[in-house]
């Protein structure tokens, strides 16, 4: 009985994330648009799948990924081996971003739009290759950003100089990037950091800042996410220039 209770509780937690969206859409459909919804059954079925999927996904992360990821970030931060710490930061950024659901969604959407616009071939292989290339580029960018971010925490540099420098690079690269990639590139910054990446990356930053003397975990521990949202823009635009 308590098991059922727990499952229902978790389902309603995921449902709560969706509830505001459903309320806003229902309001606009019923009050503003007053048009029949086509394929209502399919949409409701799909929404149920989304709720169920997110419930499993987050529960699985709590059981498997987060505990080892966090304890590993802490013990590597304490171990003091700079090389392994940097390697771990890169690998963590790359691996978590490759599995990020929102990024998978955006990359597929982008490949479809690119195929329709004739930028890439319209066959399945070309689209899949484009989506995968986009995702690997973003994953590479997040990996590099964590290396820079970890380096910043070790050196204790103030974050805003690096971010301002990053903005300048974004502007310069934008001038050279093809117009078709700019929107996707700017979006990929915000997309990369959600369900998997944020908790693990925050654990790394705070663990690192609290194990170094003279660092304030609050001032120095945060800010990794900011790097992880900035570098993908630069990398994706470079990808657009090269492809």
């Amino acid at each position: 009985m308590s098991w059922l209770h727990r499952v229902l509780g978790r389902l309603s937690e995921s449902g709560r994330d969706l509830l505001p969206i459903i309320l806003v859409i229902a309001f606009f459909q019923l009050v503003v648009l007053r048009q029949p919804l086509p394929q209502l059954g399919q949409m409701i079925g799909g929404l149920l799948l989304v709720i169920l999927g997110l419930t499993f996904f987050i529960r699985g992360l709590e059981l498997g990924l987060f505990p080892i990821g966090e304890s590993m970030a802490h013990s590597l931060a304490r171990k003091g081996s700079l090389v392994w710490l940097i390697v771990f930061a890169f690998a963590l950024g790359f691996g978590t971003t490759a599995a990020e659901p929102a990024l998978i969604a955006i990359a597929e959407e982008a490949s479809q739009v690119a195929a329709e616009a004739g930028v890439i071939g319209a066959d399945n292989d070309a689209m899949e290759g484009y989506a995968l290339g986009l995702r690997l580029t973003v994953a590479l960018a997040v990996g590099c950003s964590l290396v820079i971010g970890v380096w910043r925490i070790l050196k204790g540099w103030p974050i805003h100089y690096l971010i301002a420098g990053g903005y300048v690079i974004v502007m310069i690269v934008t001038a050279f990037a093809p117009r078709e990639i700019i929107g996707i590139a700017y979006d990929s910054g915000g997309v990369t950091t959600s369900t998997i990446t944020v908790p693990l990356v925050t654990a790394l930053g705070v663990g690192l800042a609290s194990s170094i003397k003279g660092r304030n975990p609050v001032v120095d521990g945060f800010g990794l996410i900011a790097f992880a949202s900035l570098t993908p823009m630069i990398f994706v635009m470079i990808y657009g220039i090269l492809v």
Partner: peptide, 30 residues
């Protein structure tokens, strides 16, 4: 530290992500 829980966790992650992606195509994008 806890291999069984971690294996179950990865199983959940796989199932959850798959269901989410199917639901995404059927509901969120449309």
């Amino acid at each position: 530290p806890n291999p069984r829980a971690i294996a179950i966790g990865f199983g959940y992650v796989l199932i959850g992500l798959s269901l989410f992606l199917i639901g995404l195509e059927q509901a969120l994008f449309p």
